[in-house]
Simulated scan of single mutants.
Amino acid sequence: MNRRSFLALGAKAVVGLCLAQAGPAWAKIPSSLSTKPRTLSFYHTHTQERLDITYATAKDYDMDALAKINTYLRDFRTSEVHRIDPAVLDILWKIQQKMCCNSTYEIISGYRSPKTNQQLRQKSNGVAKRSLHMKGQAIDIRITGEKTKTVRDCAISLKSGGVGYYAKSNFVHIDTGRVRTW
């Protein structure tokens, strides 16, 4: 290998490393990360409750932790608790891994009862009749210290479900439904 080939190879390696750590051209999450404990920090904007929790270790979910998350992400208007799809939590965890941040998720909405969803639909045309919030498959969030536009772009890059961007209200909707954006 001559000097020119060596330098070109070195430059490609440096660019590859930079792209792997830069947004929005995130690299794929290395499979080795799937063996790390998955921990999330939450702050609920309506109840002012906080929750720091490890919900999975290696590839196994912690059922007690999931039960605590179900209660935490309850319909805060009715106090109704519903099972939250663990895949929603995995999306949140993957976003943090891709963004290289461990900041707190600010929760705007987790589970919504059909009654709450109907009440919100009467106030706004932006609430879906068959919202995945009612199935525990959606969450509305921001990340402390991060631009919601950056969070949106990262979530879209995962191609793990629906991603809605509400710039005026400053939050991102994430769900485990079909891949789509709005």
Score class of each variant (00 low, 15 high):
69 I>L: 07
71 T>W: 07
72 Y>G: 02
73 L>N: 07
73 L>D: 04
75 D>G: 12
77 R>D: 06
78 T>A: 08
80 E>M: 13
80 E>L: 13
82 H>Q: 15
82 H>W: 11
83 R>Q: 12
84 I>A: 01
85 D>A: 10
85 D>H: 09
85 D>S: 12
87 A>V: 12
88 V>P: 00
89 L>N: 03
90 D>S: 07
90 D>K: 04
91 I>A: 11
92 L>A: 07
94 K>N: 10
94 K>E: 10
95 I>P: 00
96 Q>T: 12
97 Q>D: 01
98 K>L: 12
101 C>S: 11
103 S>L: 04
103 S>G: 15
103 S>V: 04
106 E>C: 09
109 S>T: 14
115 K>E: 10
116 T>W: 03
117 N>P: 03
118 Q>W: 03
121 R>E: 14
126 G>P: 00
126 G>T: 13
128 A>H: 13
132 L>K: 10
134 M>E: 10
134 M>R: 04
135 K>T: 09
135 K>Q: 14
137 Q>G: 10
140 D>Q: 11
140 D>R: 06
141 I>H: 02
143 I>G: 00
143 I>Q: 01
143 I>M: 06
145 G>A: 13
150 T>R: 09
152 R>K: 15
152 R>C: 07
153 D>G: 13
154 C>T: 09
155 A>T: 08
156 I>R: 14
156 I>W: 06
158 L>D: 05
158 L>N: 08
160 S>D: 13
